[in-house]
Design a protein around this nucleic acid. Structure first.
Length: 322
DNA sequence: ATGGTTTTTACTGCGTC
DNA sequence: GACGCGGTAAAAACCAT
């Protein structure tokens, strides 16, 4: 056990993270140049202890590294190859042979006793494994949710989905990381505050393709009804990210509704539509924005914004713009 | 695997500050 | 001259078959 504890506590910095120490900043409090970033993402002055800021994204140790190869593997680790058992094989196993320490057969009374023990031991062992699994997953869900700025109820939803996945035995063959990420993705969408796959990928430890695959699988197995993401749900976030007015936001919404009614939007990415609507709305309300700024907050190429917003305006033509 | 569609990348030209 | 914008062609990513 002590073995496990020390492993977890030890920092697992990858080579490229070493640059974290001492960033080129100056402490406003004591003028010291001795600023560094801790492994929990706080920027702190070494001489006076002032915390200058925190990075919401956890850049801390990439979970645990079990061996040098894992550390090498820049950041992502899947299931550790050596420690395949959740308890590192430390839990008790009761031999199936009904013999005592000397190899003599057990009395029937003893045998019954052993049967009971075996049964309970097994129960606790698997129960324990699920618990650990869940605990880790919930931790991940929490971490990712807060990094994405998702409210508590979304986390709740994600947790519930994860529990269901666990119940339905959807986990075997899939990583805890992957499934928890998929749960967050699903929960965010269900709550009407979707995050794009790219955003999710940013804070997850698994690749986009795996998240997508796992999400599809989980959604299907759990028959989660999730309507295609509504472009409008991205609008508030983009608008506030650009510091636009309420009016512009409204404008963007109506643009999207109109587009929807004309069926211009099918097959196009909701994010792109939303971004274009926000951009167009900013133009219509004479607010200063650039395509590149929008593409920045929306994570969408400028070209796509251009294409979409032409379509939006075209669709608007028929109605007659004020 | 394949083909069709959408998005991205990279580049170019135009007007303005 | 840098910047914002628009367009285009080709590559890449995505999706259904």
């Amino acid at each position: 056990m002590s073995d496990q504890t020390t492993q977890r506590l030890s920092k697992t910095k990858t080579p490229e993270e070493e640059t974290n120490e001492s960033v080129g900043q100056q402490c406003p409090e004591c003028e010291s140049e001795d600023i560094s970033v801790t492994d929990v993402g706080e920027t702190v002055c070494e001489s006076c202890g002032l915390v200058l800021g925190e990075d919401l994204v956890d850049r801390g140790p990439e979970w645990r590294a079990f061996n040098p190869q894992d550390k090498q593997e820049k950041s992502r680790v899947g299931a550790p190859t050596t420690n395949t058992m959740h308890d590192k094989g430390l839990s008790t196993n009761i031999d199936w042979r009904n013999r005592d320490a000397y190899g003599n057969a057990l009395s029937s009374r003893q045998r019954q006793r052993m049967d009971r023990l075996r049964k309970w031991n097994e129960r606790f062992r698997t129960r324990d494994s699920r618990e650990r699994n869940l605990k880790q997953a919930l931790g991940e869900i929490d971490r990712m949710s807060s990094a994405l700025g998702l409210p508590k109820n979304v986390r709740e939803t994600a947790s519930v989905i994860y529990r269901r996945a666990l119940e339905e035995d959807l986990l075997p063959g899939r990583s805890i990381e992957g499934v928890s990420t998929a749960c967050v993705y699903a929960a965010a969408r269900q709550a009407g505050m979707p995050r794009s796959l790219d955003e999710i990928t940013e804070v997850s430890r698994v690749e986009k393709s795996e998240i997508a695959r796992t999400y599809r699988y989980v959604a299907r197995e759990l028959k989660l009804e999730v309507k295609p993401a509504d472009p409008e749900s991205y609008v508030p976030r983009f608008a506030s990210g650009l510091g636009l007015s309420e009016e512009a936001e409204q404008r963007a919404r109506s643009l999207l509704q109109n587009a929807k009614s004309k069926g211009v939007h099918s097959g196009k990415s909701p994010v792109g539509l939303a971004a274009a609507a926000v951009y167009a709305a900013a133009l219509l309300t004479n607010e200063k924005t650039t395509q590149s700024a929008v593409s920045e907050v929306a994570d969408i190429s400028e070209v796509t914004i251009r294409n979409r917003y032409h379509e939006l305006l075209e669709a608007e033509e028929g109605i007659g713009v004020a």
